[in-house]
Design a protein around this nucleic acid. Structure first.
Length: 201
DNA sequence: CCATTGATCGTCT
DNA sequence: GACGATCAATGGT
């Protein structure tokens, strides 16, 4: 219970943009045989499914994106660039394929384990900075897809943490995409050192 | 600080 | 067969 209670399914069952913003300050926590790693989120992005040209779900369901078309509160972990895994939480009602990409955070528990999964010499500020780095710290890969984040007994959980005040939230364009490049659905905690780089395609 | 580039392979056209 | 919801290393300003 160190980081508050687990967020309920209703938290994720609403507009994906609102969820992305409200996830800042919350804590993702994974538990494996190796131990627990917890990350306080400082950067997220919203992807609005079939309505959003930048979403993997834009052209309708495929075997890969099937989870996103299911009920909210489950994880979608995808493989990209031949070497990286990235994690999303499915949002909105069943049938609407929206999801929030977890882009960056601060490791607040399990620092040693997180570092061993990345690089032994990784600085704290870059440990979970970037979606693939964040997923790596948590030990996530494709086998985690479909898991719930809304149960206290799930190996992957999202805890309430401490919500971030509106005055400290910055909205801007999403990173690394080639369509809908100007839609401001990337949310960061202003001035936080753990936010990832702002390079665009 | 900024810009460029190679690595590497699943997914969909 | 092309293209990624990326990262780290490199080299210049």
């Amino acid at each position: 219970m160190a980081h508050g209670r687990v967020l309920p399914t209703s938290f994720f069952d609403r507009d994906v943009v609102d969820v992305a913003r409200d996830l800042l300050g919350r804590v993702v926590e994974s538990e494996t045989e190796e131990g627990v790693v917890a990350v306080r989120l400082v950067e997220t992005e919203a992807y609005a499914g079939e309505d959003d040209p930048a979403s993997h779900a834009w052209r309708g369901p495929t075997p890969r994106t099937a989870v996103m078309f299911g009920p909210p509160g489950h994880v979608y972990v995808y493989f990209t660039y031949g070497m990286h895994w990235c994690a999303n939480v499915v949002c909105g009602p069943d049938g609407r394929a929206s999801a929030v990409l977890l882009r960056a955070g601060e490791v607040v528990e399990g620092l040693g384990l997180a570092r061993s999964r990345r690089r032994p010499d990784a600085a704290d500020r870059i440990l979970a900075s970037g979606p693939a780095n964040l997923a790596s710290c948590l030990g996530l890969d494709g086998t985690w897809t479909g898991r719930r984040v809304t149960s206290p007994r799930s190996p992957l959980r999202l805890r309430a943490g401490t919500p971030v005040d509106d005055s400290a939230v910055v909205a801007g364009p999403r990173v690394g995409i080639t369509r809908a490049v100007d839609v401001p659905w990337r949310f960061t905690v202003a001035g936080d050192r753990h936010v990832s780089g702002t390079r665009r395609a």
